[in-house]
Every structure is written in structure tokens, then in C-alpha cells.
Design a protein around this nucleic acid. Sequence first.
DNA 1: TACGATT
Length: 388
Amino acid sequence: ILLVGFTIVQGLLSNKLALMDEILQVIAAMETQLSNGPTCNNTSNGPSTISNNCSSPVESGSIEDSKTNLIVNYLPQNMTQEELKSLFGSIGEIESCKLVRDKITGQSLGYGFVNYVDPKDAEKAINTLNGLRLQTKTIKVSYARPSSASIRDANLYVSGLPKTMTQKELEQLFSQYGRIITSRILVDQVTGVSRGVGFIRFDRRVEAEEAIKGLNCQKPPGATEPITVKFANNPSQKTSQALLSQLYQSPNRRYPGPLAQQAQRFRLDNLLNMAYGVKRFSPMAIDGVTSLAGINIPGHAGTGWCIFVYNLAPDADESILWQMFGPFGAVTNVKVIRDFNTNKCKGFGFVTMTNYDEAAVAIASLNGYRLGDRVLQVSFKTNKTHKA
DNA sequence: TACGATT
């Protein structure tokens, strides 16, 4: 009976955590989409659209369609402006960098702007960092376009969707009313099943208005129930977000008890699976507490946990370290050590992670990882200077 | 093959 009870409580807790996370993501997505979000394409990751041609002809291309200024969407909630700069600075010299925060709470709104000195670096950043997985998020990197009134408030909230409806089908349903910028169907984080709720962002508000007129209270083809289509909530209602964010970052999460640890472990496993697919990692059985006992604060440096990465290729760069370690948790800094003259990687680098548990899992997962034709060796940094 | 500094 105890065991059953434990399992139930555990299930409830992990569900709650997952739901909370999802709620936060939804809010972040709403705000991102309501802001000066990326306007082109949205089907998948990778170096997708790289033009600005989506804004209306009247407003685009006039003074300057900046080829250096990027908007970065879907950043992890806890990512700071410094980390953003560090990440994108690994590509090239940055002219300016801005993480957009809530004016009242100071919380990140999950997006920011990075302006490079060189347009070439901006393009490179899109090609290499768009689609990068960081913790629970897949960041989106695209050219920032000048804001304009006509593209604002074009985000729709859709509910009552058939659980079987796919994102593609959702887009098909709405595309008759205008150009769809982003679409999303929310899924249960545990089961992956559609929650029957989604968002559609049109290019222009008028298109969104027409979609409401045409689709609200209507049954999609083959559906048995009508859907609800309305404008997504305006992010000016910040109270709920502040509450949720504070809840999410409660002491319970930072210093979890055994139960919460289990839930976090569960979440982390899922995240890892999402980030890297399957069997690239051996099954992990890391116990943050006991493994800590056997180690004399290796790699600990007040600012975080420093990790030594050995056997990097000569052409390795910082972005690969971000890509490898980012999915495991908060990464504050990465560094590839290069030869001063050749500028080639000397075969190793360092990664700083904020949280011990995440660093430990990253090490356990990435040590022995095959990168190209090399097998990496990953461990906490020691104090050893090349003695003998 | 192995543990950072041209800010």
C-alpha cells in the first residue's frame, strides 16, 4: 500500500511539474509571438528562412532591413543576458545584446536581440544556432524586423480541437484566412497526447480577425465538437506569470527533497530524450547525493561547476560545447582552448554549469561520447597543471 | 594526445 501511495504521489508531482513547465512555456510562447517575433516559416528547425520578406511590402526594405540584428526566441527562462551574449559571442563580435525582461518582475520574457558587427556573423549564427536545444527549449534564431502596428495582436488561441488533429492539419484549417507565422498544438508533457489546445499567429491582425469570424464555434471537417477561436491573452496580464514563475522557482525546486528529485530526474530523462533522441547515451543512474560524497568538490568554482572536455577536434568551436552541454541544464560559460598562433583548438575546452546535478548528468552522458571521429573524455576540471 | 588566461 505504501508503495502504491508513493507511486501515486510521485506521479502527481511529476505531472504537476510537467504541467507547470508547460504552462510557463505557453506563456512564454504567447509573449514571444505577440512580440516582434520571427515572421518567416515555422515548420522545423535548422537553417530555415533567412530573409525578411515576410513583413508587408509597405514597411519592409525602407530604411534598413538590418542584416546584423537577430531576434532569438524560446530562450530558457533562466538564461541571462550574459549567457545569451556568451552563446552568440561564440560566433562573432557582438555590437549589442539585449535580453527582454518583464519591466516589473525582471523575469526573462524568453526572447532577446543580438546585433552583430558583421552581417556574415549574423547569418552564421542563424545557420548554427537556430534550432539549438537548451534545456526544455529549442531556440529560434532569425533576423529581427522592424516592429510595425499591422503585425501586432495577430495571435490566436484555439481550443476544443480534436485530439487527433496535427499541427499540419491545424495550419491547413487556418491558412485559408491568411499567412500563418507560427502554429502550435500543446501536448501533455508526459504522454505526448494533444491537449486540444493550440496557437495560431497570423502575419496580420486582420487575418486573425477573419479567422475568428470564420472558425469560432465551427466544427472542423470530421470533428464532432466545435472549436473556440479567440485572440490569445495579452501579456499585459503579468500577474499570473509572476506567480507561476515564483512558484516554479520555489525553494522546493532548488533544494528538492527525495520526491521532487525523482520527479526532476524523470523530467530530465525526458528532456534528454527529447534533446538527443535515443540511445546516444548509456542509461544513467546518477544519484546527486551519493556521487557528491565521493568527490572533493572537483571543478567547483563558486560561479558554478567547471567541466573539462578533452579530445576536441582542432576546428572545434564554442558553439559545439553549447550544443552538447546546453540540453543538460544551465550553462553559464564555454571555452575552447586554442593555440595562439594557429588559432586551432588545442584539443580541450571547459564548460561551466550552474547546478551540480545537471553537470554530473552531463558528464556521465557525454564522457565517451563520439563527436565526429573522436571519443570525448569529459570530467570535472581538476587542479592539475601539466606536471609530468 | 590530457586541465585555461591577448580583457
